[in-house]
Amino acid sequence: MKIANRAVSVFTLLLVYNAAFAGGGWPQPKGWGFFKLSQWWVVSDQHFTDSGRIDPNTTMGIFNSSLYAEYGFTNRFSGILYFPFFSRAYMNNTISGTTGETLIPGEAINSIGDTDLGIKYGITLNKPLALAATLTFGLPLGKDNGGSAGSLQTGDGEFNQMLQLDAGTGFKLGNVNLYSNLYAGFNNRTNGFSDEFRFGFEVGATFLKNRITAIARIQGIQSFKNGDLPSERSNSTSIFANNTEYLSFAPEIAYNITEKWGVSAGVGTVFYGRIIFASPAYSVGVYYKLTK
């Protein structure tokens, strides 16, 4: 994440939002799948600085239309894809309050975004504690240097590899089905970006005859600050920066329209951060569960 770094930020803020009925310590059973079409966006006129305080910036926005998919190749192995097939980054015009003239014209770029490909392995199956390991490759398919100042990005320009371990369990409280999941991962970043430690915890509850699932998540990223990306090449404080750190709270709610189709909405708020946008990110989506 360059003032928040791509593979890590995008993965955490975007991909993990797709976890209603997917993700966590449970791989998809063989032949089953989970597919979600989502819109994720953040618009921010401020960011967390390297000292953790909040400074203003020209209003910028990032919008991703994405496909997220999990498919069970076997009962233990699931393939994972996060593909932002349309990604837009823009910056507002800067207007003189004195003369009304445009001082710096706004800009926008459109492209596909950085994409994640992963494979999940179920370490335990049909046990009270579901353990899974996921290897994710972050493919730098987006633009990392768009616009006249190079600050418009739909990707961070680096290929990263992340190994993540998930531990999840399901339980009941009265008539409410609940689950919880804990994960930790190491994200190896290239091209001068610092590596990262990622972690998160979530609790979900399904109720109203399995119609509604409410999820609460806490997610974090800690940078190892071991990258050597020169500041001249660092042109981001959005979600694609280097040495980004944050702790966020991201609730999500999903509504099962039928047994297979559903819709969801989520919001992510960063309450501690360094070098990342200081505004909430939102997501809405439609998902489909492939079962036998």
Binding site: N92, N93, T94, I95, S96, L103
Partner: peptide, 12 residues
């Protein structure tokens, strides 16, 4: 959901 470019007014 893909937004248009807006204006930021600065007191200059």
């Amino acid at each position: 959901f893909n937004s248009c470019i807006g204006d930021d007014v600065v007191d200059d």
